[in-house]
Simulated assay, not measured.
Amino acid sequence: MFSGLVRMASTCWGPVRRYARMNKDNNNNSNNSSGDDDESGGGEDALLWCRDLEKHSYGEFSFAVVQANEVIEDHSQVETGRDATFVGVYDGHGGPEASRFIRDHLFLHLIRLAQQNGTISEDILKSAFSATEDGFLTLVRRSCGIKPLIAANGSCCLVGIIWKGTLYVANLGDSRAVIGYVGRSNKIVSEQLTKDHNASMEEVRQELRSLHPDDSHIVVMKNGVWRIKGIIQGIARRLLKSALNEAARKREMRYNDLKKIEKGVRRFFHDDITVVIIFIDHELLVKNTTVPELSIRGFVDTVGPSNFNILQGMDAKAKAKNVV
């Protein structure tokens, strides 16, 4: 659960100063949703939402979400600005309240703390996570009397921030960040950037027990799988459809047939899935590229101005303060 796992974040923080320049010719093929590029075999999936190749400060990104639950429990966002890019994927469980709360508050806490400190750093990101956790726990305390099930809500949390040429990645739960870069023989190599927090790992179970000594049921075995409180456990659209094809294959059916299944019932075949792909171009790191400052929220498809614009001039103010 979000409240219990936030203390484990310290094992996963750290800037990654290696970027990958991706092959844009291959990427642009993702815009073609017909013929061989459409793994669905034709037709549209009413529960699938995507945005193909939008711009951010250091390249391009694509974004895809598919719903399985009656009420989607995945929430996500991409925030673009002149000097920074923010990506958040929040995999809710037990309901959408926790993941939606994180989407609505984590980035705002980050911006507030960045303004106060004049920069974005590992410590700022940790503080934003903690402030979000505190806010959600307050909401639970106020609401559990009239809505007791909110106390069983939780969410994984995966965040990536590019700020001044440095990539920061943080996660809670078993959502995963992977970087791909061109290696030897011009082959794309993938590298996992985050460490999964999953109750199937003995070290995670031990840490949870140490953090909750008064709760003998903090981790339990259920149907042969370790669960916390018995509850937990290429291009974006192309990766998402690959996952859906695999889900269909396991049930000995075609994706075309899977698309006909409605939300709620669809949950018996696969979970809500969110994929965000960020392409990073070395050359753009040294160019003064103008990009739209946008806030895009996955699946709900709302687009508006991003609060990143309030960070403009932050460095100049910090320098002036130091001079004084």
Rank of each mutant, 00 (worst) to 15 (best):
R251T: 05
S210Q: 06
M8R: 10
E283L: 12
L53Q: 10
G173M: 14
E133N: 08
T11F: 08
D196I: 14
V204Q: 03
S62F: 07
F107W: 05
R266D: 08
H282C: 00
G95M: 09
S190C: 08
S200V: 08
Y19P: 00
S175T: 14
S210V: 06
V159D: 04
E39P: 00
V220W: 02
Q312Y: 06
M22R: 12
R51S: 13
K195F: 06
D174T: 15
Y168P: 08
G95P: 04
C144Y: 01
F268I: 07
V169D: 13
V323Q: 10
N23Y: 11
V303R: 01
A64V: 07
E191F: 10
S34E: 09
D196P: 06
L193T: 05
A199T: 14
Y19I: 15
D45V: 12
K147M: 05
G92A: 08
L139T: 01
A199D: 10
S175Q: 05
A114N: 04
S10A: 15
T11V: 14
V324P: 03
V189N: 00
S216K: 03
Q192I: 10
S210P: 00
L113W: 09
V323Y: 09
N309T: 05
K229V: 10
F279N: 12
Y19D: 01
G313W: 05
L106A: 04
L258T: 06
N31F: 13
S185N: 11
R297Y: 06
R142P: 00
Q115H: 10
D83R: 09
I179P: 00
A84R: 03
G165N: 13
S76K: 11
Q115K: 15
L113G: 08
T290L: 05
I146Y: 03
G94T: 07
I277H: 04
F129D: 00
N29G: 06
N29L: 15
W163D: 09
Y19Q: 00
G43N: 11
N27G: 05
A84G: 02
V140Q: 02
T80E: 01
K317I: 15
K187D: 04
V300Y: 03
C144H: 02
L239A: 03
I278W: 04
Y58V: 06
D257P: 03
I232H: 08
T132H: 09
I188K: 04
S121W: 14
R103Y: 04
A316N: 10
D123N: 11
A114H: 07
W226I: 05
C50T: 07
N28R: 12
F107E: 04
V189R: 05
V225N: 07
